[in-house]
Write a protein that binds this DNA or RNA. Structure first.
Lengths: 223, 223
DNA sequence: CGACGGCTCCCCCGTGCGGGGGAGACGGTC
DNA sequence: GACCGTCTCCCCCGCACGGGGGAGCCGTCG
């Protein structure tokens, strides 16, 4: 179970007033073994203490929020926190005046909510590495240059393979081997192989212990 | 005990042009054992064949989509499909003219993207049961009556005895029946009795689902 | 008093689970 | 070319798990 957490995964704090968007970002990002969501906030006003506490590498920050918007929150983080996290501004609209405001305020990147999961993942990895993503075009260019399967390279260094992670996620939802097989459109024997691999890698004796490890490690999260 | 999957889970088709929203809805809905996402579509134009193929109970339909919008798609489904699925219109804005259009076109419900997960889940369950959700206020009222989180509500209704709770705690730490028996200084048959009671009360099919419910309800917590 | 619920233990029985082994196909790396 | 990792599928096999019964002991409560 020392799997992911050990090799310096990218930790992300999600800040968006819509739980659905947070859930989506979380689902997309947690699917990557080298990215983990450290926490969530529903408003910019809650960012400062959370950043202090969680020390995330990246903050995925919505622009429009009820109490404190993304611009104010970005300014507050950069002013208040020493060695601040990278700030990835998340927005709905292509040409959002607020986004440019946020970038002027010091945000490191720019991400459209309508982006494909691979692009979202890629954007998080890039800003974490210190790259700047100022325009959606840049995201696409970089994603294209990266190759057809962006996740592959990172996956190879991960403890769980892509397939094993998928199986673990379904295990953590309470699915039986047969149900997982149906869902993934493979045979039950294949699922058993993956389950055995997961158990071995997590040091779990049975699927219940594996699910516990998934919760304890943050691979899946309650709520 | 024929727990969740048996009792006719609600199947949902997600139709939204934004992958992030689909991922969010999927994450929220799949967290419920009695709800499963049958498929996804990125545009209203793809809905008809998918509905024919998947026969979902509910279609969660975005209003604004590039090729065919939710109104047109709703009309198309109701006109084309015999015994059509319930249509739950998903929208970003509180007062969206398009939503009323969609409702006039025959949609069964109305859901704001900014809704809390519990509300989303509740809305899906209700339209699946034939209820209509025409206004957000109705959703909130019902959600409020329902309680904070579905899993918690299930736990509260469960009313585990002291012994059953003790057994569940140990289950959630990965112990086998034999180990729990040793720990509690009782026979394994006794543990099995308690485990069965826990499964029945939580509506879980096996110990893994019980442990998941324990985490989701906050009965046990990570870390 | 009897009824009831919680805790304890017992039986039988089917099966899902997990370990062990092997194997073919594919895609990379060396 | 050989090699390795992943994904896929197959076999056998033992056992823990979970469902279905039943039963005795002990409290509380009407």
């Amino acid at each position: 179970m020392t799997a992911y957490a050990e090799r310096m995964p990218v930790t992300v704090l999600l800040v968006d007033d819509e739980p659905l968007v947070r859930a989506g970002l979380r689902a997309v990002l947690e699917a990557q073994p080298d990215i983990s969501v450290a926490g969530e906030a529903a408003d910019g006003a809650a960012v400062i203490p959370l950043v202090r506490q969680l020390r995330p590498d990246v903050v995925a920050m919505d622009v429009r929020m009820p109490l404190m918007d993304g611009i104010e929150a970005t300014r507050a983080v950069l002013r208040t926190i020493q060695d601040p996290p990278k700030i990835l501004v998340v927005t709905t609209f292509e040409n959002d005046e607020y986004v440019y405001e946020a970038l002027r305020a010091g945000a490191d990147g720019f991400l459209l909510k309508r982006s494909r999961p691979a692009e979202i993942v890629h954007a998080v990895r890039l800003v974490a590495e210190g790259e700047s993503l100022l325009f959606p075009a840049a995201v696409r260019a970089l994603a294209a240059e990266y190759g057809s399967s962006p996740a592959r390279a990172a996956m190879e260094r991960a403890a769980l393979t892509e397939r094993e992670a998928a199986v673990l996620r379904l295990m953590a939802r309470g699915l039986s081997n047969a149900e997982i097989a149906t869902r993934l459109v493979v045979g039950t024997e294949t699922v058993k192989t993956h389950v055995s691999a997961v158990l071995a890698k997590l040091g779990a004796r049975d699927r219940t212990q594996a699910v516990i490890a998934a919760y304890e490690s943050g691979f899946v999260t309650p709520r």
